[in-house]
Design a protein around this nucleic acid. Structure first.
Lengths: 254, 254
DNA sequence: CGCGTGTGTTGCGTGGGATGCAACGCGCGT
DNA sequence: ACGCGCGTTGCATCCCACGCAACACACGCG
């Protein structure tokens, strides 16, 4: 739409392939050298390109700073909330959103079930970390040493007979979750409550949040709830895409 | 230099602070809405900005991939990383790697004392340039006129009573650092935190990066931290040798 | 229901600004 | 010294980015 801006921005992916000198840039853009020079200068003033000692241009570190700042100021909750509501409207059950922080998993958003029977939870409340579906999703993405260290340090309270009993079992469960890209909690916290969950991923592919649908089995059986899994995963993926900003790189959708 | 490009690029840091709608962007740029719209559209076509459901704009995924590639072009980082990890494992404290670019000093790698590398964590943040040990090391190596010009232009915020107060003091400090080949920050940024750092040099002897070890003095006293200095210097020298080895010295001119 | 108000969007004429050209400075290799 | 390949600069031309005004659309309110 805007010619000069369009040209200037075309320089960036070009430099991403490696440093280039003025002539090369001008050639690839199909413009005169002086034009390329002026574009590069404006990019330079904004720190997006850097001039190395041999006068060749390469991408600048300000790009890095911008990206960094952007993710810090982006709230997953804001982008996720409408999706959570939509999911709740289509299936009727309680929907949760959670993040991992400082060795704890916290609910940061919740849309209540439309059924009379509700499960108890509260935004900001720590999640039972060894059994909740969202907790498994978030911990499964931690770097291996940290995951292991954390698993060893946890308590494994036996809420029910199906609760995760110890660190070894937990680590096996996390491996499975990591593998399959989704998680469940089938009566592990409260005998009559089941959950299915899926991860929300950031621009770098790391899990930044997890969402889940929960329902007591007086309303739906575990099997019926599992039938919702594709829907939950699609929703989580939609949130990921929007959070990351329409990721063109489709990586690892196993 | 190039008006429209200049305006378009000014939008990026603006959006890094958080999502904004068309009107807000136009206002902050001081241009008509239609102009802002065209600029945003061009940015959008290149994937640098993303339009979320409520029509507000935010930074897009393309920026993140570019940032990724930008940092990958910093080859010092690859060479240094294993050494940083080793240093961290032997002393347990936080280890930083930083470079100077375009009148800014940026962290490009970090190893946390508690857990292993988090790629996007705090890396990319500009360093408090007047007090950080790594900043002193990098600026001390600038050619004299540039160093002086930069020093005059800086602000000297008094983070603590030990912060560098003004340009004159800063230049004296840089001279000392240049002389001795290492640098410290003893509570200059945060009262309770000390750092010791050493330079990484390229094949031509110029400082291409700087590394440091940081620790709060509730863990180790400044004196104990200084005891690590030989270890830090040895590590930095090892990186320098390896880096000089991987990059054939094209320019032995000096 | 109509109206007012707040968005985002479009078409268009105009002139400022981006463009390409040619000339220049400079370092380097022969 | 000379030519050659770079990056850089001043300048005249004309394109294209600009602001304007009108439109489209969704709300909220009387």
């Amino acid at each position: 739409m805007s010619q000069s801006v369009d040209r200037a921005l075309s320089i960036l992916p070009l430099l991403a392939r490696g440093p280039a000198d003025l002539g090369a840039v001008a050639d690839e853009l199909g413009v005169h050298k002086s034009t390329a020079l002026r574009l590069l200068r404006t990019l330079h003033e904004h720190g997006l390109v850097h001039r190395q000692r041999d006068q060749r241009y390469r991408l600048g570190a300000r790009l890095f700073t911008l990206a960094q700042e952007a993710v810090e100021n982006l709230d997953v909750r804001d982008v996720a909330h409408p999706h959570l509501v939509a999911l709740n409207e289509s299936c009727g059950h309680t929907v949760h959103l959670a993040v991992y922080e400082e060795r704890e998993v916290l609910y940061i958003d919740k849309v209540e079930s439309r059924y009379p029977v509700r499960m108890y939870s509260r935004i900001g409340k720590p999640v039972p970390i060894t059994v909740a579906a969202v907790a498994k999703l978030l911990l499964a993405d931690l770097p291996e040493p940290e995951r292991r260290a954390l698993a060893e340090r946890l308590d494994y309270p036996l809420y029910t007979s199906r609760s995760t009993p110890d660190a070894a079992a937990f680590l096996r469960e996390l491996a499975t979750v990591r593998e399959q890209g989704w998680a469940t909690d089938l009566g592990g916290h409260e005998e009559s409550i089941n959950c299915v969950g899926a991860p929300v991923k950031g621009p770098d592919g790391r899990v930044v949040a997890a969402m889940s649908v929960s329902a007591p089995n007086v309303v739906v059986t575990a099997e019926e709830l599992l039938g919702l899994l594709p829907h939950v995963r699609r929703t989580a993926d939609a949130v990921s895409r929007e959070y990351a900003g329409t990721t063109p790189s489709k990586e690892a959708t196993a």
